[in-house]
Amino acid sequence: MVLVETQNFASLQEKNKKNKNNMEVENAVKTGEVAEMEKMASQVRRDILRMVHACSSGHPGASLGCTEFFVALYSKILKHNTKFTMEGKNEDLFFLSNGHISPVWYSVLARSGYFPVSELKTFRKLDSRLQGHPATAEHLEGIRIASGSLGQGLSVALGAAQAKKLNKEDNLVYVLMGDGEQQEGQVWEAAMYAAHNKLDNVIATIDYNGQQIDGPIAKVLDLMDLAAKYRSFGWVVIEEPKGNDMQSVLNVMKKAKSLTGKKQPVMILLKTDMGYGVDFMVGTHKWHGQAPNDEQLANALSQLEQTLGDY
C-alpha cells in the first residue's frame, strides 16, 4: 500500500516537473482559491461559536478543529448538488460519523447554499431542523443519516458506496470519523469489510486531534499506531500533519481522490488542533462539549474576522 502511494506521488512529481510553467499559473490560481476558502473558514468559526453560545450547549472544540476540512470538502472536493435529494444520484456523498461536531457541518451546509443561513440561529432549540446531533427526521437538506452514537458512520458510508457500485455510478463516498471514535468495535468491523470488498470509492478521514471527553486519547485508551492498524486492515493510508492549513488539507484530499479506484479503500489521518482559531480554546479537550459564556464569546469573535456576514 505504501508502495502504491509512493509510486503515485513520484509520478505526480514527475508530471509536475514537465508542466512547470502550467503549474506556476495553477499555483497562482490556487492561492486565490485558498484565500477565499480561508475567508469562509473564518466565518464558519464565527457561526460555530455563536451557535453553541446561543443555546449554551454543543461541541465547539472539534467543530473548530475540522473547519478547514469541511470548507475544503464542500467548496472544492465534493461533486455535489445543493438541490438536495436523499438518493444523491450521480453525486458524491458525505457522511459525518462523529455527529457531535454538527455545528461546523450545519454552518458549511448553510454557507454552501443547502438551506438559509438564518436557520443556524435555531440550532439545538425546540422545533428546529438543526438537532443537537444530525438527524433526517426533520428533513434538513444535506443530511442522509442520523449520527451521534459513535462508530456507525463508516458502515453507512460503505453501504452507500456499495449502492453506487451497484448503480454503476462512479462517484465517491466520503466519511469523517473522530479519533476517539476509533475505540468503538463497529469501526473495525467496517474497516475489515471495506478492504475485503475492495470498496475503492470510499475516502474516510479521521479527525486526529488526540483528545476525547475525559482527556488525551493517549491517556484514556491509546490508539497506538493508528496508521499501521488501518494499513494492516488493507487500507491505503495518507497522513497529513497540517489539518488546519487550508492548502495542505486541499492537497491531501486531492491526493486521496487520486488514490481511489485502485481496489482499496482510502484513509486520511488528518492531524488537527481541537479549538483551532481561538487562542484560549486550542489544543485542549476542555472545549469538547462546552459553550463559551458572553465574555468568552466576545473574546473569541474578536479573533475571527467577519467575512461573509453573521447570520
Binding site: 436523499m86 438518493e87 444523491g88 456523498l93 457522511f95 442522509r144 443519516i145 462508530g151 456507525q152 458512520g153 463508516l154 458502515s155 453507512v156 458510508a157 460503505l158 453501504g159 452507500a160 458506496a161 456499495q162 449502492a163 453506487k164 451497484l166 448503480n167 468495535g185 463497529q186 468491523e189 467496517a190 475489515m192 469489510y193 475485503h196 470488498n197
Partner: peptide
C-alpha cells in the same frame, strides 16, 4: 452481485444496510 456476505459483524451489517437504502436498494 446483489448478495453481501458480511461475516460475523452484525453491527456493520445494520449500518451497511442503512447505507444501501440511500442508493435506492
Amino acid at each position: 452481485e446483489r448478495f453481501f456476505q458480511m461475516g460475523i459483524s452484525e453491527a456493520n451489517m445494520m449500518g451497511v444496510a442503512a447505507g444501501l437504502t440511500i442508493g435506492g436498494k
